[in-house]
C-alpha cells in the first residue's frame, strides 16, 4: 500500500500541492485525473522523488518510498542522442527480460539510433524500459499520448496482466475513457488536493455530472467572450 499523508509542495511561492492525502492499494491500477495544471505530474514526481517535498510523507508498505521500488514513465520521454534502442534498454538490469520477445509486441527497430525514431516509437521504447525495470510500483504519466490504437490496446492488456501479477500501477491520462476502462480506482485532483477517490463504477456515474459542470462553466465564459 502507498500512503501519502499531508503532502505539501510548491514551485517558488506557488503552492502546487497542499495537504494531500491519498492511499493506493497494492495490486490495483489507479488513475489520477485532473485539469491541466492541477498537479498530476508534480504528484507523480514527488512519489518518485524527483521533486523535494516541503512536508508530508510518502510510504510504501510502511517505509519511505524509494526509487528502488518504482519505475517511472514520463510524459515526454527524452533519450541520449546517438545511441540505439538496444543500447538504451541494456542500461536497465534485468537478466530475465527477453527484449526481443517483448519487442514482438512493439515492432521497434532496436538496432537503429533513437534519434531516427518517431515520437510514437520513442514512447514505445520508454514503455519497454519501464517494463524491463520490473519494479513493484509503476508510475505512468500519460502513457497513451502519441501512440496508435493497436499499441494502446497492447499496453492496456499488459497493464491488466501486470496488475494480476502483483504490480501497483498509477496512471494519468486526459482520455477519461481509457482510465475508466482500465483503472480500479480513480482519484480526481483539483487545486493540489484530491477532491475525491472513487471506484471505477462509482466514477462512471459521477463522470457525466462532473464534466457537464465543467462544460457549463466554459460555455458561459465563451458566451461572455464571443457574445
Amino acid at each position: 500500500m502507498i500512503t501519502i499523508e499531508n503532502l505539501c509542495l510548491s514551485y517558488g511561492k506557488i503552492k502546487v500541492i497542499e495537504s494531500l492525502d491519498l492511499t493506493i492499494l497494492e495490486n490495483t491500477i489507479n488513475g489520477v485525473v485532473g485539469l491541466n495544471g492541477s498537479g498530476k505530474t508534480t504528484l507523480l514526481n514527488a512519489i518518485y522523488g524527483l521533486k523535494s517535498v516541503e512536508s508530508g510523507t510518502i510510504r510504501w508498505q510502511g517505509e519511505k518510498v524509494t526509487k528502488k521500488v518504482i519505475s517511472y514513465l514520463v510524459t515526454e520521454p527524452f533519450f541520449y542522442s546517438n545511441i540505439t534502442g538496444n543500447e538504451y534498454l541494456s542500461l536497465f538490469k534485468n537478466s530475465s527480460f527477453d527484449t526481443n520477445k517483448w519487442n514482438e509486441l512493439f515492432h521497434l527497430p532496436l538496432n537503429q539510433i533513437i534519434d531516427e525514431y518517431s515520437t510514437g516509437m520513442k514512447k514505445k521504447l520508454a514503455v519497454l524500459s519501464v517494463l524491463k525495470q520490473d519494479k513493484p510500483i509503476m508510475i505512468l504519466d500519460e502513457p497513451f499520448n502519441g501512440l496508435d490504437i493497436e499499441t494502446c490496446r497492447i499496453i492496456r492488456s499488459v497493464l491488466l496482466r501486470l496488475k494480476e501479477k502483483g504490480k501497483t500501477i498509477i496512471i494519468t491520462s486526459h482520455i477519461i475513457e481509457t482510465l475508466t476502462n482500465l483503472c480500479d480506482y480513480i482519484h480526481f485532483l483539483e487545486g493540489g488536493k484530491i477532491l475525491f477517490s472513487k471506484e471505477k463504477n462509482e466514477f462512471e456515474e459521477f463522470e457525466k455530472e462532473l464534466f457537464q459542470n465543467l462544460e457549463n462553466k466554459s460555455a458561459q465564459l465563451i458566451m461572455e467572450l464571443l457574445g
Partner: peptide, 21 residues
C-alpha cells in the same frame, strides 16, 4: 552506426554516442 561502436560497452553511452557523432 558501425560495428566499431558495438565494441564499446553499453554503460559507456557517452563514448558510444560520441564515437558515432
Amino acid at each position: 552506426n558501425t560495428r566499431i561502436q558495438r565494441w564499446i560497452p553499453s554503460q559507456c553511452f557517452e563514448w558510444k554516442s560520441g564515437a558515432r557523432s
